[in-house]
Design a protein around this nucleic acid. Sequence first.
RNA 1: GCGAAAGUGGCGGAAUUGGCAGACGCACCAGACUUAGGAUCUGGCGGGGAAACCCGUGGGGGUUCAAGUCCCCCCUUUCGCACCA
Length: 870
Amino acid sequence: SLPDRYDPAEIEVRWQQRWDAEPELYRAEPVHSGKPKYYVLEMLPYPSGQLHMGHVRNYAIGDALARYMWMQGYNVLHPMGWDAFGLPAENAALKNQTPPREWTLQNIAHMRRQMERLGLSYDWQTEIATCLPDYYRWTQWFFLRMLERGLAFRKQSKVNWCPLCATVLANEQVIDGCCWRHEDTVVEQRDLEQWFLRTTQYAQELLDGLDKLPDWPEKVRTMQRNWIGRSEGATIEFVLDPAAQESETAHDRGKLSLPPPADFVIGAPIAADATRIPIFTTRVDTIFGATSLQLAPQHPLVKQFAQADERLAAEVASLVEEQKKAREAGDPGAVDKHGSFTGHYAVNPFSGERVPIWVANYILLEYGTGAVMSVPAHDERDFEFAEKHGLEVRIVILPRRTLDPAASGQPDEPVLPYTEEDSLLINSGEYNGLGCQEAQHKLAAFAKEHGFGQPTITFRLKDWGVSRQRYWGAPIPVLYCPKDGIVPVPDDQLPVLLPEQIEITQQDGSPLSRVPGFVNATCPRCGGPARRETDTMDTFVDSSWYFYRYPDAHNPSAPFSREKIDYWFPIDQYIGGVEHAILHLIYSRFWTRVMRDLGLVGNDEPATRLFTQGMVIRNGAKMSKSKGNVVSPDDMIARYGADATRMYALFAAPPDRDLDWQEDGVAGVSRFLGRVYRLGMRYRESVRSHAEQPSAAPTSPLAQALLRKLHQTISKITQDFAGRWHFNTSIAAVMELVNEITAAESGLAEMPAEVSARLMGTIVPSLILLLAPFAPYLAAELWSETGGTGALLRRPWPSFDPDLAREEELEIPVQVNGKLRAVVRLLPDAGNEAMQRAALAEPRVQAAIAGKQVVKIVVVPNKLINIVVK
RNA sequence: GCGAAAGUGGCGGAAUUGGCAGACGCACCAGACUUAGGAUCUGGCGGGGAAACCCGUGGGGGUUCAAGUCCCCCCUUUCGCACCA
């Protein structure tokens, strides 16, 4: 008696035990295997304690791909690990008195079990956890290499501080002015001395590299381009004119420029004691239209002016406050632009004109030089500001056609602000008549030649602040010696171990600073007492290189061997959420280049292909505890099995789109798997008895139809893997195949037993193989029940036979004036005349054209016939 | 404000190149079988209409023998960027 009930819990647990006992099942072959390699990687999770549906979806995609690539004969590396440092472990320690390490390792153990229960094909032998000394030893080692090369450095600067995290954050971790972990918590600015990694050194290369990543989503590349924020322009030094302020009374306060000083000569050397005010502009071609300078409220010169001017000091303070508020509100662009005249003037080095110096709330100290020349006629922000304060608006560029002598009539005034670069200069001295671009080059070159400026490229990307005043992270491996200053920990003293016994409190400052046994150390240079660095590294440092460790996860003497990296890298397919488009994905691109320049790897980029899957949502919203719409993977697995859960995650939507989790849909997939199970079991003996026999031939119309459907399905799924990854349609295709087989069963029963057995002995094993990437448990069970041996993963993917897949007859739609009237069945390549004849013979077509004149008959071979009448 | 993606039955979605709109699944309806189940099997299922037939892919125009698909205008949603000088 055959079991007629599909019991995923029983099947899956039984197979899980078998797979647990075969750890080599998913192990990649050695570098010299001679097979083509395929490195498929899903982003490593933070061990929060529970997998969520987003993880399940991510891993279901990667696992299907890994299994498919094994079946295609590749040597596949498919590893998993844990991004295991981080603040939640400390919070958990505060809450329930569990040490962070213990809490983290427990979570890892639990989540690993969940992954195994899902049947994911990871090679656990290569597992890494970034919080273990074996791993962070090498994180520290890399830090020291960067320190040697000046890529890691310490500097005092304004940094982002999250009061909830009680630590500094990198710029990348601040989203709309708030902490990336605490979306409602506004980040404060603190002036601290911190460790940085010099990401800006690779800014240009990180930007250029994006053009060489055609298989990364355009969206991610755009986000990175925006983040790097390159802009090309010039730095020009205006010079403060100390004499000009006396004549200020003759004018409206700061609204007009003063004529050049009597002794002004363009390009004359600037006096050594002059105060230079560098500004950055991308539109130096409009410099003759500059009618003021605008300084950031925090600009050092503003501070200097304010010291002697109480009223100005008060105004500046309020501007600073407005900037802060706008940033907190998350909409800095919406703020009303305004400012104050400082009472001072600066000389425009190209015209000698003395322009009033203002301080304005829309100028950012962090960008460029914190000062701009204001050209109201040709910049939207400057225009808005000038309108507000009644500053002069002077047009210095005009559209080409306006100045074209061939154009008739009077030149139109352009609508201001006018910013088109395809324009010509006017009111600009000897530069009149030049195009904007040409003028930009000439002006910048002149400034450089005469020592008051140069062409300049600025980046929005800043160096990466990596110091964290937290316990649960990789210690920064340096010492502070009163005699020798900053001293790196020697390589042979790595790792700098995190102390295990530590009290976690909510006090400010690094918890490590309160551990004397950690802080007090010996200087390796002079042997005297030294203080250990007590900050730890940002966890994004740990995850910037983790995928290089997998191929050589247990190497005791190096982070990895070059030979293994050369074989496995770059990663062939990286899969994860789009939320890391800036953070992890830009840091790891930086890290790869650093390692390349250290001679450790040969590749420029970590991954050739990147796939960002959509979110899992429910009832139209992202799953979250506060919305109460969270679905637990454990629940789904308990009710429907891992196969059904994973397969639904692939079936409900294409993987790049958001997926609406509907439990009824999981039940539907589970029902389908039950149908497959019973189908396989019904033909178990047929398959067994035909294991060694040649494949069935299309000896009858029914056999032919089934074999045709089988091969069409093979083709469809193979194409989905190679192309768009629309696994929802792959699974739909398998469902169609199963439906067709089921519908054919009464016909099969009428065949001679030997013939139907051979037919099903051919079809069922292929069906199992097609299902294997999506439902590995059921596939393994059926494979084994039907007499198959060995790991399904290493069986070749079914081969496609186009002759068997070809349709014998085509259904050709017949339209009259574009409307469907009939369908005719014809042999392929029937010829236009035959197609027309068949179409016109249809009674419904006859009825539709009766009494009308046939104007034209459009015949698309093998596709369609359209009869045009009037 | 700028940029990108999307908008198709009651729902998730399919239609890779302009060529039968709605594959596959869910929900629902009807039936079969039953040791009555969250079971299985069969059939139906965009709207209107008795039917012929008509209408239908966010809205409006256009190109074409033929438009979900191409072009123009508009609306909505999501995402990214947003004083970056």
